[in-house]
Design a protein around this nucleic acid. Structure first.
Length: 313
RNA sequence: CGCGGAGUAGAGCAAUCCGGUAGCUCGUCGGGCUCAUAACCCGGAGGUUGUAGGUUCAAAUCCUAUCUCCGCAA
């Protein structure tokens, strides 16, 4: 089959790779334009572009697909099918309807739960024990298309968004290949999404990382691992920001005020709102390097009974 | 030229303003103690202070250049 691949970030790369290695012909790759990135604001190509170019594929980076611009590209490339994996923009109707088999999207959640921008993170933030990948026949809505195939993945109690991201990107590639096979064989059984169970999630913001220690320990732990490694959870100490990269739930309980450092030897424990504790494993002070908790304690001056500030107090 | 912080023993920090033999916590090695510990006691090793120049009797410290790392913003 002649396939056009659309995607932009790291998540899309395993799918593109799988497509390249398959028997199908990748006739074009569409991704977002290069963007300035990092401290120096260097114009950087998205990961998908880099991967595509290393295989001598044709790469297109249109600023918009609207007003017939997207359709014109398809008319030139003549794909039978378009695969979309975290492309980053809404596809207009005249684009969706052009390919013989339409457009198929690979989405990193169990739809209709977590339609939108950051499904992986939200699954952890909400403390779900299961997520997965859904492929769907795209329609005009945001992740509202009919479901083609679902692959479930369990979420471990300490899994981080980063780890889950990696896992799902590969599960996504497998789901994609299976879906294409089914498209070819005409063996699809599209299932309509139950809109009453839909959950929409938006882009992540830094603000989400601010820890409110009066919340239950489990919830704080979910926040820390769900936002790792970006944008990351943080608290305030000594007038500056302390990022918390990794933590785990402690079995210890205590009655100290939320945010209090209750133990510094043999583990850095902080009291939470429900009387349970979170053990900080990896932290980073503003302007400093990322450190494991023990190294941080050696030189920081952080001591027992000091308090991490919660917002709005 | 977006704003800012930092490079000192294996790790994290102090000493830098006001130049004068580099100190602390941890780890490590040796010994001791304990039913026991990420526990305690005693002792030791480990540094051309990121790099290159300059000023000075003397530079981690002052001046100039350069490399690297990081927080914010985007």
């Amino acid at each position: 089959m002649r396939i056009v691949f659309m995607g932009t970030p790291d998540f899309s790369v395993p799918c593109l790779r799988a497509l390249i290695e398959s028997k199908h012909e990748v006739v074009g790759v569409i991704c977002q334009p290069d963007k300035p990135v990092g401290r120096k604001q260097i114009l950087t190509p998205p990961p998908v572009k880099t991967e595509a170019l290393s295989h001598d594929l044709r790469v297109l980076q249109p600023a918009t697909l609207r007003n017939g611009a997207g359709r014109a590209i398809l008319e030139e490339l003549q794909p039978d099918l378009v695969i979309v994996v975290a492309y980053g923009k809404i596809l207009p109707p005249d684009f969706l309807s052009y390919p013989k088999y339409g457009c198929v999207n690979v989405h990193a959640s169990l739809l209709p739960r977590y339609r939108g921008a950051s499904p992986i993170h939200w699954a952890i933030l909400n403390g779900d024990s299961e997520t997965g990948v859904t492929t769907m026949q795209m329609d005009e809505g945001m992740d509202t298309g009919d479901i083609l195939l679902v692959k479930k993945v369990p979420i471990g109690p300490d899994d981080t968004a980063e780890e889950l991201f990696e896992t799902l990107s590969h599960v996504g590639a497998a789901a994609m290949l299976e879906t294409i096979e089914a498209v070819e064989a005409g063996a699809l059984h599209p299932v309509r999404q139950d809109n009453s169970k839909a959950v929409n999630v938006g882009l992540l913001t830094k603000q989400l990382g601010e820890i409110d220690w009066s919340k239950p320990a489990q919830q704080i732990h979910n926040q820390i691992r769900g936002l790792f490694s970006w944008p990351g959870a943080y608290t305030y100490w000594n007038g500056t920001v302390l990022k918390i990269h990794k933590a785990r739930l402690s079995t210890q309980s205590c009655s100290k005020a939320p945010g209090t450092v209750v133990q510094t030897k043999g583990g850095l424990l902080v009291a939470c709102g429900d009387g349970r504790c979170v053990e900080l494993l990896e932290v980073q002070l503003a302007g400093k390097k990322r450190l494991d908790a023990m190294a941080f304690l050696n030189g920081s001056g952080l001591a027992k009974d000091m308090i991490f500030e919660s917002p709005k107090q």
